[in-house]
Design a protein around this nucleic acid. Structure first.
Lengths: 118, 118
DNA sequence: CTGAATCCTAAAGGATACTG
DNA sequence: CAGTATCCTTTAGGATTCAG
């Protein structure tokens, strides 16, 4: 018997926790695709997110050192978000998740079709 | 500018939803490591999970076609859980998550140490 | 423009007791 | 042994308002 695995020590859970948040993967995808975006540019690209959640998620991603936040001291304020160098290491992970997820949707779709034949 | 990405059409989100559940990755890890386990064997290996959550998570993993459930019609009941053939395709994904998560914990640890030097 | 503050709802998960 | 059923707590997220 293998040793016990707890959520706290499981490294898979560690990865998942980093991405845990309804909009975090979306935010990361936009920053991966476009490099640098202002707060409102992100808001426009993710219409259904609330300002509150965008702020909270950005703060958490920043705390994880995945993104950096640059404030231009001017009025009206201008704040730019982009991935840190470290944050860019998440791209292969995102791609792996994307590929498996895409295949998974197809798989579930196929199962449903087979069910209808019964 | 790329097209908008919504949670519903985002394939990364699709993968994450499959693993969404406090104990699901843990359950999968045990089944990956040991092949077939009975309900109570899983419960013993994951001491802090409640029977309720174990049942719910197993049902959801089964609905995703990731695991299969075999009931032996006897008293007392015997139910065995194992990965489906399709479910085994999640192993590379789990490994990728594990590796990134392990590195991430180390990264965060290093950042904390650097902070203390200030 | 980029937030912060407050209040509220919904969903996930836990505790406990019961059952074929 | 392998669950169900019920009730409760916690947490994530949404709606709205205000502010520098």
């Amino acid at each position: 018997m293998k040793e016990k695995i707890n959520p706290e020590q499981c490294q898979v859970v560690s990865s998942l926790n980093t991405l845990l948040g309804k909009w975090k993967p979306i935010i990361l995808q936009h920053l991966l695709a476009e490099g640098t975006l202002r707060f409102n540019e992100l808001k426009k690209r993710i219409p259904d997110i609330t300002q509150r959640m965008l702020t909270l998620h950005l703060r958490e991603l920043e705390a994880q050192d995945l993104i950096k936040r640059v404030v231009y001291p001017q009025v009206p304020p201008k704040v730019e978000y982009s991935l840190t160098e470290y944050g860019k290491t998440i791209e292969p992970l995102m791609n792996t998740l994307h590929d498996w997820g895409k295949n998974h949707l197809q798989h579930i779709e196929n199962l449903k079709k087979l069910d209808k034949l019964d």
